[in-house]
Every structure is written in structure tokens, then in C-alpha cells.
Amino acid sequence: MGVTARSDAEKSQVIISVDGRFDFSQHKAFREAYKDASGKSTKFVVDLSDASYLDSSALGMLLLLREFVGADPKRVRITGANEDVARVLKIANFDKLFTVG
């Protein structure tokens, strides 16, 4: 359970992996994962391969990350969503705000 961040300096990319339930309890860890990166240049990959569940507060956290990168849909990619997680992202139409897949 939890959020881990790996920094790939070469690609100036941060990979944030969420494990288990992606809900409000991850709020702090998720924020920690990107707050020290440069919002202007870093790309982010949110890897949800190990996320079992995602609720609306997690959608809110993704919106905060989106705000952090200046609302550029290409700078945040969401990958690896399982069926339940993908359903929530699809219902929220988050493919209009992020690169999903």
C-alpha cells in the first residue's frame, strides 16, 4: 500500500506508482511525490498497475497534479489502470485532461 516515486533524470520524468487503494489516505504521499519536481519541465507518469481502486478524492489529487504542471494534458500520463480504475477514469472523462493509456 502506498505511493512511490521514481525519478528518471535523463528523461526528466517522474514515475509515481500507486499501490492498493488510491483514496484520500494517499493524499500526502501523492503530493510529496511531485512537489519537489519542477512543474515547468518535468513529465509525470502515474502508474496505476497496482492500484486496486480509485475514488473521487484520487481524481481530485490528479487534478492537483494537473494544476501543478500547468494543465498541459501531455505532461501527465496515466497508465496501467485495471478495469475498475479505468471505469472511474472513463466515467469522469479524464482522457480529456490527461494522456490515459
Binding site: 473521487s56 478524492s57 481524481l59 481530485g60 489529487m61 487534478l63 492537483l64 466515467i91 469522469a92
Partner: peptide
Amino acid sequence: FQLLPTDRFMA
């Protein structure tokens, strides 16, 4: 959009 903070919305 005016009332709610970034991470809040209404479906």
C-alpha cells in the same frame, strides 16, 4: 469552478 478548490468538483 469559482466556488470549489482544484481537487473538488461535481459530477
